[in-house]
Structure formats: structure tokens, C-alpha cells
Amino acid sequence: MRASNHLIGLLNFLTFLLSIVILGGGIWLSSRANSTDCLKFLQWPLIVIGASIMVVSLAGFAGACYRNTFLMWLYLFVMFFIIAALIGFIIFAYAVTDKGSKRPVMNKGYSEYYLQDYSGWLKDRVVDEKYWAKISSCIRDSKVCSKMGRTYNGVPETYDMFSMRKLNPIQSGCCKPPTDCGFVYVNETQWDQGGAAGTDSDCSRWSNDQQLLCYQCDSCKAGVLGSLKKSWGKVSVINIVVLILLVIFYVIGCAAFRNNKRIDNDEPYGEARMTKAQPSRIQL
């Protein structure tokens, strides 16, 4: 049983080291003077998560190594809620990203995204003007569109080359106009509108201004939703793996907790038995 104490101590020490990295990342983001609104929005969750993991890891490490029953109880108590919260997040992530998918475009390598294909809490969050201002600022500052340019032997890519590219959801929705608009390709982020007038409302929102492009288009919001769905799907898989590991840690922690209680209960009994036995040896 004591092996469980040593194992849970080692595991919590490794988790403690991880929490330092997470906490340090959050503090670094908060200290940057030129952080974008998107990065500032992310700093507090990182700090809270890192600090929580650090406290729980220290409690579990100290409780296991020093056989402190109270700290082990605190560790198990908090870990239970972390596991419950993680299960809730996994269910929530699958629920809010259940609807919506990309639409393939005929004779194109990329797909396109439509806002009407999505619904629910996540869509309402993204289209909200307050949050969209932060999201669009993040996309603009990341320069994802300006990095789309490619050359082959010093020659810019042609429309045929561009149309066969596998664009990610953000590039497809925010950096180019919808294909239905019928605009003429100049380069990856410049399109000649000419006399074309597509039925899609995003056609009138498109601008060749590199600070505007299609950042206010519904297709851009749909691209963000498509990117979130893809990212959250990967995160959910990782969370499931983490959840399994945490459950294993929790079971080992329960074994260590029972071991501590058994030792605490045995020691007074052993001391009393030795005290009772000592007079008999003196009489002999």
C-alpha cells in the first residue's frame, strides 16, 4: 500500500511542474503591453487553471509523501470536482459543436462555410458584436491572411493553383470572398469585383483593404465556428485522455488515503500494546 503513496507523490510532482508552465504562460500574457484583446481574454483562464493545478498537486504531493491524512482528503475532494468539471466540459464541447459543417466547392480544393449551417450557444457567442470585435481583432493581428501568399520559382501563384489549395476555415471564410460572388482573382487577398453581383450578402461586405477583407462577413464568422469545431474536437479527445489519467490518479489517491488512515489507526494501537507489554518484561 505504501507504494501507492510514492506513486501519487511522483505523479503530483510532475503535475506541479506542468502547472508552473501554464501559470507562467498566463502571467507572461498579462504582462505584455502589446497584447491583443484576444490574448488578454485568454490570460485569466490560464492563470486560474495553472494556480488550481498547482495547489492540488502540492496538496497531493505533501499528503502522499508525509502521510498527511487531511491534505490527502483535500486533494481527493478537489480532484473529484476537477474530474466532474472535465466531464461536464467534454459533454458541453460536443453539444455546442454538434451542428454545422463545411461545404465542398465543385472543382476547388477548399471548402466554404455558411453561418446558417450553425446554431446554438456557440454561434450566438461568436456573432455577438462584443465578442466578434475581439475575435476579428485577433484574426487581423495574427496576419493569417497576409501569410497566404505563395510564389513558385519567384512567380506568384495563379488562380488555378490557388483554387486547388487546402485552405483552413479562417482562410476560406475571412481572407477571400465567397466563390458565388464571381469576383476575378488578382492574388490571394485581392479580387477584382468588376460588375459581378452575387446573391450572397457577403459580396457587398468584401473589401480589398487588407485591414478589412471579409472580417465582417458571415462567412468569416462561419469560418471561425468551423475552426472552433475542429479545434474543440481535438481538445475533447485530449481531454478524454486526461480524464482517464485523472481517474487513475484519483483511484491511486484513494488507496494512498486509506493507507494513511490505516497507519494513523495502527500507530496508537501499537504504542498501547508496547506500553502494556513493557511492565510484564520488567516483572520477569
Rank of each mutant, 00 (worst) to 15 (best):
G50S: 05
G270Y: 13
G270D: 14
I8G: 00
A277K: 09
Y66Q: 10
G24V: 07
S119W: 03
A3Q: 08
T179D: 14
F70H: 05
N12I: 08
V55P: 04
K134E: 03
S172N: 03
V237F: 06
I170L: 15
Y152C: 02
E271V: 07
L18T: 11
V56F: 03
S207C: 02
K99V: 12
K130H: 09
A95N: 09
Y114N: 09
C214V: 00
A95Q: 11
V241F: 14
P156Y: 01
G173A: 06
R32Y: 00
A95S: 13
G24I: 04
S57M: 05
Q210L: 14
A196N: 11
S4G: 04
R32V: 03
M274K: 13
S4C: 15
K99S: 12
T199H: 09
G24P: 06
G120T: 10
V235R: 03
K40S: 12
C175K: 04
I252S: 08
R67Q: 15
S201P: 10
V48Y: 08
T15M: 14
F183V: 08
L115A: 02
T69C: 00
Y114H: 15
V251T: 12
L71K: 02
F183D: 09
K102G: 11
N153P: 01
F183K: 07
R262V: 03
N107S: 15
R103G: 00
V242L: 15
N5P: 07
N34L: 01
W73D: 01
K230E: 11
L167G: 04
G109C: 11
V55D: 03
V247A: 11
L245I: 13
D98P: 00
N5V: 04
L71Q: 07
I252Y: 08
D141K: 15
E267D: 09
S31E: 09
R67S: 15
G109L: 13
C138H: 05
D192Q: 12
L74F: 14
V184T: 15
L17D: 06
V21F: 12
L7S: 09
F77D: 08
V96N: 06
C65F: 14
G223R: 09
M72G: 10
I244G: 12
Y152W: 04
A84Q: 09
I49L: 13
I263N: 09
Y110N: 14
G233D: 05
M79N: 15
I248L: 13
Y75M: 08
E112S: 09
Q211P: 00
D264M: 06
Y94V: 13
Y75L: 06
A33H: 05
D37I: 03
N259Y: 10
S146R: 08
L245D: 05
I82P: 01
V237C: 02
L11N: 05
Q190L: 07
K261T: 04
G223S: 07
A59Q: 06
K234V: 14
T151W: 01
N265T: 11
W232Y: 15
K40M: 12
V237N: 01
R281D: 12
Q283I: 15
L243S: 07
A62S: 07
N187M: 03
